[in-house]
């Protein structure tokens, strides 16, 4: 009898401990410990991750070498045009725009939770990565930095149910918010039925949320349905990024554009 009671008591104490941790999510010590644990795991996980990726990288390396040879020929042609363009730009007094400063990083692992919600990358505060910086690939937006340790960071993907990105329809310029829609689907909420929307329209970041620079591709509209309840479009998106094959990413360290 006492054994059974002891057993239930240990479950109760453990559950209370877990609840205590849930309530202390904003605690700095708890977050520092989380960051340190991520950093530690990255040290062990990086070689294993590299080993798994090696065969794919060899193939990619061969393909890129071939591409590099082809591109170097093209570059020679383009450099002539660039000189000409630069001369014309000066003549027209175009203002110089600063590019985004990007930090290259690699995916070390997925968040071990159920469903896809985040990834671990091998760049941290030592590389200039900070919380709430945008994470992108050449294809489009991946997510934002949720936690930044010294040498690793946790990235919240657009597929996270708690993620929300201020977005704009490329054609009609109507703004809305992109949310996860379960699985690998995204949806654009808050677009009134008065806006012109069609399938295949691009959806880009609006820059209104302050996290993502404007103009980054999020996806294209896949299906558009009329929601009679609140006079809003129900828009499903095809993400621009293939979330199943994320490997090399960029963290947008600075997204200022000189005015």
């Amino acid at each position: 009898m006492f054994g059974v009671l002891k057993s239930y008591l240990s479950w109760l104490i453990t559950s209370l401990l877990a609840l205590g941790l849930i309530l202390s999510n904003e605690n700095m010590q708890v977050n520092t410990m989380r960051d340190n644990f991520s950093d530690l795991l990255v040290i062990v996980a990086r070689p294993v991750s590299n080993l798994i990726r090696a065969p794919r990288l060899w193939g990619e390396n061969a393909r890129l070498r071939k591409q590099l040879a082809e591109l170097s020929i093209k570059v020679a042609d383009i450099s002539d045009s660039a000189v000409e363009t630069e001369r014309l730009r000066h003549m027209l007094d175009f203002r110089e725009r600063s590019a985004y400063e990007l930090v290259a990083t690699e995916v070390i692992g997925m968040n071990p939770d159920f469903g896809i919600r985040g990834i671990l990358v091998d760049a941290g505060s030592e590389d200039g990565v900070e919380i709430n910086q945008a994470v992108i690939t050449p294809d489009g937006v991946v997510g934002r930095v949720y936690r930044a340790g010294k040498r690793s960071s946790a990235v919240q993907l657009l597929l996270d149910p708690n993620s929300g990105v201020a977005a704009r329809l490329g054609r009609s310029r109507e703004v809305g918010i992109v949310h996860a829609a379960g699985g690998r689907r995204l949806r654009l909420d808050g677009v009134p039925v008065t806006a012109a929307v069609g399938t295949g329209d691009s959806v880009i970041t609006s820059g209104l949320g302050g996290v993502f620079p404007p103009g980054l591709l999020i996806g294209v509209t896949r299906s558009v349905n009329h929601r009679a309840v609140d006079w809003l479009w129900q828009i499903e998106l095809q993400p621009a990024v293939d979330f199943g094959h994320l490997s090399e990413l960029f963290v947008v360290r600075k997204a200022e554009r000189a005015e």
């Binding site: 877990a18 202390s24 999510n25 795991l41 968040n111 939770d113 946790a154 990235v155 996270d160």
Partner: peptide, 8 residues
């Protein structure tokens, strides 16, 4: 600890 959700 490794996730982006609540700890615990």
């Amino acid at each position: 600890a490794l996730s982006t959700g609540f700890i615990g």
